[in-house]
Each structure stands twice: as structure tokens, then as C-alpha cells.
Design a protein around this nucleic acid. Sequence first.
DNA 1: AGAATCCTGATTGACGTACCTCAGAAATTG
DNA 2: CAATTTCTGAGGTACGTCAATCAGGATTCT
Lengths: 335, 335
Amino acid sequence: MSGPTVRDVAEVAQVSLATVDRVLNNRGGVSAKVVDRVKAAVAQTGYVRNLAAANLSRRRVYRFCFVIPSGDTGFIALLHEALAREQQRLMEEQVLVQVVPTKPFDVEDQVAALRNLECDAVAVMASEAPEINEEIAALHASGVRVISLVADLPSSGRDAYVGPDNVMAGRTAGEFMGRFIKDQGNVLMIAGSLAARDHSERLLGFRMVMQERFGGCTLLPAAQGADNAERVEQIVLEAARDRRLAGIYAIGAGNRGLVRAVRTLAPRPTTIVHELTPTSREALRSGTFDLVIDQDILSGVIAAVKIMRDLTEATTPPADAGRIKLNIYSRENIQ
Amino acid sequence: MSGPTVRDVAEVAQVSLATVDRVLNNRGGVSAKVVDRVKAAVAQTGYVRNLAAANLSRRRVYRFCFVIPSGDTGFIALLHEALAREQQRLMEEQVLVQVVPTKPFDVEDQVAALRNLECDAVAVMASEAPEINEEIAALHASGVRVISLVADLPSSGRDAYVGPDNVMAGRTAGEFMGRFIKDQGNVLMIAGSLAARDHSERLLGFRMVMQERFGGCTLLPAAQGADNAERVEQIVLEAARDRRLAGIYAIGAGNRGLVRAVRTLAPRPTTIVHELTPTSREALRSGTFDLVIDQDILSGVIAAVKIMRDLTEATTPPADAGRIKLNIYSRENIQ
DNA sequence: AGAATCCTGATTGACGTACCTCAGAAATTG
DNA sequence: CAATTTCTGAGGTACGTCAATCAGGATTCT
């Protein structure tokens, strides 16, 4: 009733259990001829590994580290929350996740955090800096698998990137911005820091679309808000002195300041931001924000763990495994 | 390391393994005092039954049926594809999934399909009809757990619904339609069949938003395209005789006809459709469609299986487990 | 020919739970 | 007090896979 087992495969292939095991878990040491026979037997019997039994038997414990900025608001808070929730579930799959918080924008601290990690794989969210790239390269050389999270670090030699296509995110923002503001007026772009690759890529994508298809708008010079609410608020208020401020595209954190600023303006500029946080959700619902482009960080964490497991098992993860989907939220589809 | 086991519970409760087993699987024959002690020990240790080991031990195989319309195009094709892909993975978890295709819009055939099913749980996608509701009620009474998929059947007494909030889907479509067409012109709505609850709910949501916030538009009477490309094409061409056709909202299938029709029109009306299929993806990319509102059917299938398993285990699934997210796609974020 | 290497078989003990039997202790009954 | 019933303990086997060991046969090399 419950399907064929390794025993049946062994019988059909005329080999021992040990040999079937060697083939199935490719441990090597089996001649090509026998390998073929076993594989044929698997196909013939329709054998499928019983995952429950496999997990039960194999008691390997994976040790993964997440090196990410600390923070108790916005997206970073959601990331920590998602990690905490997943930790529970992952325990049951013998995955131990350790979170190593770093000081935001502090390269030295982030480098220090990457030192002396005791684990099989690391997921890093950091800005682009040569020191960090070097540290990651060193980690990688010492046998630890490394993936970049949310913001890619392509020149670090990381094994994989888990996060959204940030150029696409920016392009998407541009598309909706252009249509919503009817292709006219000034548009303010606020990034957190241009050193953060996710921010600069979004900016790039946004600019591209606006220039390609919405030439009626004027793009103001990109401002840097340092993910700081007060800074962001000031930037907006300053830009709003010009009466033709039609749209605001906010990349990165500091949305609370953005809400405060936009609420004082009349007419209210079309506002598009990233990441569905309690703040942006509320602003969306109340009509202060017009669109939120979100990366589902929980699915990102899940994907990251999966890829880290694949990497430590030396099985190549599927090519698109790390690509997190972009979710678009308007006031009508907040969930 | 990998969580407490029955052994730990037994030790804490100062009883034997056999007694813990008797309590956990309530086999009776244990005094109230000891039962309490064991339960306290469970709470104290944080013991959770290892489902994998349990299923392994008792050789349980889940048998689930998906009763869904047949079809090799559009959303239904994607659904079948997703099921086929999941089937592979689910075999490993001792879940046997059987797909029972039904003739679309054929109530009699769908009722027949629901008869004589040999399984633990069924997922049904069907129109609303009293005969179907009755059949589901009968199934349910005979101990089979039933969930509705994509289109809800609330008065059937199904155990759960897995699918998007279709009113929300319609409202979202309305929100973007209103903003894109700048609140003026005629809007054509094409449903497949108003008997399909997902269609009627989307229509309802769309109408609500348009009336609430976009009073400048005129809603044409809702047309029924029977999920048929030719029908849909004709409906559009007819409505387009009026020069003020500013927008089209297409619920349900038949998008190939929609593409053909819209391509002949100038100016091209703003077109919003449902489900990201090869057809709608291509239309989005080429600029024929403006927005696609998609339900990720793969995640729907996964959620459905999870819920069916919970139901057959008599553990109540989390309240929001069946809610599939809505994904919004513009030409810039197709993936 | 002898030694080294490679391939395969046979066997064993986990993993955590379910389910069974048998025996003995404790509590209840007549 | 003896006879019964109720409760509990001890121990075992099974589920299907992983992982490891040991031993011996077949090849290849020197």
C-alpha cells in the first residue's frame, strides 16, 4: 500500500541494499553497469524515497548564520520577525539558525561580525564595501558557503543571491508612477544610501522607465535619506516648496517621516514606497501612500535556508531559487 | 538537539513510555491524576509529536482528490500543471493525489465525479449549483473532508476554502482601472459565468470601487463570455463601436479572444485581466494588456494539500491558511 | 605472482512513534 | 479477606532510510 521500498529496488536490480543506498545517495564506488541497473529498477518499481523516514534517520544538523543589520522598525524588524518565526519551524528539520545583528552602515562592525563564525553557511545583508567583499571571500575560501540577502554583493564571490530583482523593482515603481501622475510634474526620488546596492539598483530602474516612457515628468536629483525618518521628512518638505511636486518615490526606510511630510501637503503628491511594514500599510489604507512594492521577506528567508542547505549538500540549487517575487499593494489589496 | 521526545515526557511525568503513549493517543485506562501529570509534562517539555515518525510508524498514506474542470489552456492548464509538479514532491511525503477532471460548466458531470471517490479529502473547483452543494454535503457526511478551490461554495458545508479573496480581487482591479483611465469613459466588464462564484464576487468588488471612487466612469452592463475566446472577442468588438470605450475588465478565461479584439482598437482601451498565463503574459509584455491580477495557483495547491492533511488529522488549520495572495503584474514585473 | 585497489554484499544500529503483550501493583468490590 | 477490576510498567517489534563497518571477490598494477 505504501509504495515500493529500497528493498524492492534491491531485489529487482539483483543487488544488495548497500549498493542501492550507494547509488541513491551517490556515495560513489559503484560500477556504471550496476548504477544503470539500479536506476532502471527504481524506474521500474516506481520507487520514491520516503522523506519522513529519511529525515528521521539522517540526523545531520545544519548550522546557518544570518548576519543582518539590527533595527526594530520597518523592514528590518519584519526580517527579524520572519527569522524568529522560521527558527521554530526549522528546529524540526534539524536546522539551527543563528542571527548575528550588526550596526547599520558600520562597515567595521559588519566585517567583525563575519569573523569567527561557526557554521556551515552564512546569509549576509550589507552595503557594498571592499572590506566586506574581502571578508566574504575569505569566509568562502575557508569552506563556508555564503549568500547575499536582499542587497547583492556580486563582486564578493558569494555563492548565491537571495532577494528581488531590484532593477525590476525600480522599473515597476516607475511604470506606476508615470501612469498615476499622468506623465507630468516633478518627481522626487529618495534613497537611503547609494552604497546599498539594492537602493542604487532600484534608482537605476526607476530612472530608466521614466526616461523611456514618461518624458513629460521631470526627475529631481536623487536625495539620500540615510534610512532616517527626520532626514526624509526634511527632504520632502524642502522639495515640496516647488508647487509642481507630483510624485515621490521612496527607496529604503524612514517611511514614518515620509508619512508626516506628505500629510501636510496639498495637493498630495503620488507616493510610491518599498516594503509593506505597519507604517506603510497604514499609510496605504488611509490614502497617504498610493502604492507599496514589497518583497515578501518570509519567503526570502525560506528560500535562503533552502539554498544554504543545497549548497552545504553540494547540490546546485535551481537557478531561480533565490529570486524573491515582488508584490504590489494598493489600498485595495492589503492583506 | 532535535526537540523533546516521548521519552523526555515520560521522564518528567515520572511514568512509563506506555503510559505516555496511552495518554497521547487517548487509548484510555489511565487515571485522571496521571493524565494530568503527563499533560503537564508535555506542556513543560514543549513536546510536539513528530508527524514524520508517527506516519512512518503507522504506515499512513494520505489519499486526496482534486475535482477540477478539464482544459488545456489558460488558468486551468496552469492548475493542472501545478498539480502534476506537486504530485512528484508529495509522493515523498506519502501523499497520493488523484486528479479527477470534469467537463466545464456541466453540473451533472461534476456531480458524477464527486460520487464514489475513494479518499480522505477532496478539493473541488465548481460552479454554484444546488446539486453540487448537496453532493458535497453528502460527501462530508460520509466522513470525507471537502475544501473548495479558487471558487468558494459556502453553502455546501465545505470544511474550508482555498483561494483568493475574490471581492478584494475585483476591488483591486477597480482601483487600478479608475486611476489608469483617469476616471472617465465607458468601462466594459466581461465575466465567464455569473454562476461561478469567483466571477460574480470579482464583479461585485469591481463595481463597488468604481461607484465609490470613480463616478466619472460609466459601467456598461456586465457581459458573459462563457470563458470562450470567440465570444469574448465579439463582445469587445461590439462594445467598441461606442468611441468612448476607455477600459475593459475581463474576469475569467478567453483572453486570447480579448487580445485579438483589443489589438484592432485605436485608441487602445485600458485592459485589466485575471491570471498570469502565457497569453496574458505576452499581452502584458507587448502592451496589449495593462494589468494582470494573478492568484499564484501553485501556492494554492500547496496550501490545499496542507489543509487537507490538517483536516484528516483532525487538527484545525490556521484561520488564514487558505487565503491565496493576489499578485499584481504590470509590464515591468513579469517573472 | 603478489600487492594494491576497486567493487559489492552482508549486517547492524540508530531515528521517534505506534501498537501490542504480559505481568504485577493498586484500588475496588463482594 | 479474597476476588475482581483498574491502572501502570517493562519490553518488544515494526515502519523505511541513513550511515557505517567488515569481509571477501574481482581487477588492475607492479
